[in-house]
């Protein structure tokens, strides 16, 4: 019975293409997620990799990422929206707090926790610090960094629905509106779309990870 209702929901005229339809909500969802992940990567990856390369800052990074992970996103979203008003700034900041932690810790750990013998071997061959970083440390750390990115992607894609709590779009619109109207078909459809989106993105990133990883450590 739920399957019939779901089918009817997905096949209703305009369900995909109308304003507020599935394609629009998917695009919004991807846009919010992409924006947050791009900003978080720009901030967290260079910082984490650099600190890992220098081998310092582990204490502060652990404390910071732990604190960021503990922040409740809905609370943060409400607080920031009260301060900054409606718009994209408050939700992007709230989601950044969520995305920074896995990226920062994986970038740091990936570089800092490499076998010291490898670094010594590279330096003994006369590599400069820069060569060590780009030719040894980064390629070896890549699987862990990509793991952090996949982790962050899943968390962000699964949390972007919260943005529908305020006046933004994304697939969360169906969840929040469906709950408000007790339209459970709409909610199940949203859950399905979200799960598929998360799986698809993770599969894509897994492929990218495989392609980028040096053949020697595959």
């Amino acid at each position: 019975m739920i399957f019939e209702k779901l089918w009817a929901w997905f096949s209703a005229p305009g369900a995909w293409t109308a304003p507020g339809g599935i394609w629009q909500r998917l695009a919004e969802h991807l846009a919010y997620s992409g924006l947050v992940l791009a900003l978080a990567s720009l901030l967290a990856l260079p910082l984490g990799i650099w600190l890992g390369h220098r081998g310092r800052g582990e204490g502060p990074i652990l404390a910071l990422t732990g604190a960021l992970r503990a922040l409740p996103t809905l609370g943060l979203l409400t607080l920031l929206t009260l301060w900054l008003g409606l718009g994209l700034t408050a939700p992007v900041l709230a989601l950044l707090a969520l995305a920074l932690a896995p990226l920062l810790s994986s970038a740091y750990a990936g570089v800092a926790h490499l076998d010291p013998a490898l670094k010594q071997a590279a330096l003994a061959q006369g590599m400069t610090g820069r060569q060590l970083l780009f030719q040894v440390e980064l390629p070896l750390a890549l699987p862990l960094i990509m793991g952090g990115l996949r982790n962050a992607t899943l968390q962000v894609v699964a949390t972007v629905p919260l943005l529908a709590y305020i006046n933004l779009g994304g697939l969360g619109r169906y969840l929040i509106d469906g709950l408000a109207l007790r339209d459970y078909t709409r909610m199940v459809a949203a859950v399905l779309l979200l799960a598929l989106l998360a799986l698809a993105l993770d599969a894509l990133l897994a492929l990218a990870q495989r392609a980028l990883t040096s053949p020697g450590i595959r």
Binding site: T81, L82, N167
Partner: peptide
């Protein structure tokens, strides 16, 4: 139309 899900609350 701006949907805000706090039931006429502070937001």
């Amino acid at each position: 139309f701006e949907p805000i899900n706090d039931g006429g609350g502070p937001l």
